[in-house]
Amino acid sequence: MSSKTTSGGHWLPLVVFNSLMIQGGIYVVRPIVSYKALELGADAAMVGIIGATFALAPLIFAIRFGRAVDKGKSGLAMLFGSIILALTSFGLLFVDSIPLLMIAMPLLGIGHLLCMVGGQTMIANRSQSKLYERNFGLFTFYASLGHAFGPLIGGWLADSGEQRVNANAAFTFAIVIFILAAISVLKLSTRRENQPVPEKTSAKITAREVLSVPTFKSAIFVASATTAVVDVLLIFLPLLGRELGIGVTEVGILLAIRSVASMAVRVLLGQITNWLGLRKILIWGASVTLVSMLALALTDNFWVIALIMVVSGFAMGIGQPATMAWVSRISSADSRGLAIAIRLTANRFGQVAMPAVAGLIAVGGVASVFYMLALVQAGSILATARALKSED
Rank of each mutant, 00 (worst) to 15 (best):
K4W: 14
S7M: 04
H10Y: 05
H10R: 12
V16L: 05
L20M: 12
L20K: 04
Q23I: 07
Q23L: 14
G25V: 10
V29H: 01
R30D: 13
G41R: 12
L56H: 02
L56F: 15
A57I: 13
V69T: 14
K71R: 13
G72L: 09
G75Y: 10
G75A: 04
T88L: 01
S89Q: 04
G91E: 09
L92F: 05
I98N: 06
P99F: 14
P99V: 14
P106V: 08
G111Y: 12
G119Y: 12
T121I: 00
T121L: 03
Q128W: 08
L131Y: 12
Y132A: 07
E133D: 05
F136H: 09
Y142G: 01
A143Y: 00
A148V: 03
D159H: 07
S160R: 00
A169L: 08
T172W: 04
I179E: 02
I179C: 12
T201H: 13
A203H: 13
K204E: 15
K204S: 15
S212A: 15
A223F: 14
S224G: 09
S224T: 12
V229H: 06
V229N: 10
D231R: 03
L234C: 00
I235W: 03
F236R: 02
E243W: 01
V248M: 00
T249M: 03
E250K: 00
V251N: 05
V251E: 01
I253V: 15
L268N: 12
Q271W: 10
K280F: 11
W284M: 15
G285C: 13
A286C: 13
S287W: 05
T289Q: 11
V291D: 04
L296D: 06
N301H: 00
F302E: 03
L307K: 04
M309E: 12
M309K: 05
V311R: 00
V311L: 14
M316H: 09
S328W: 04
S332T: 15
A333G: 08
A333H: 14
A339C: 09
A346I: 09
N347V: 13
N347K: 01
R348E: 10
F349Q: 02
L360K: 13
I361Y: 09
G364A: 08
S368I: 12
M372V: 09
M372Q: 00
Q377G: 06
I381Q: 11
I381D: 11
A385T: 13
R386Q: 14
E391H: 12
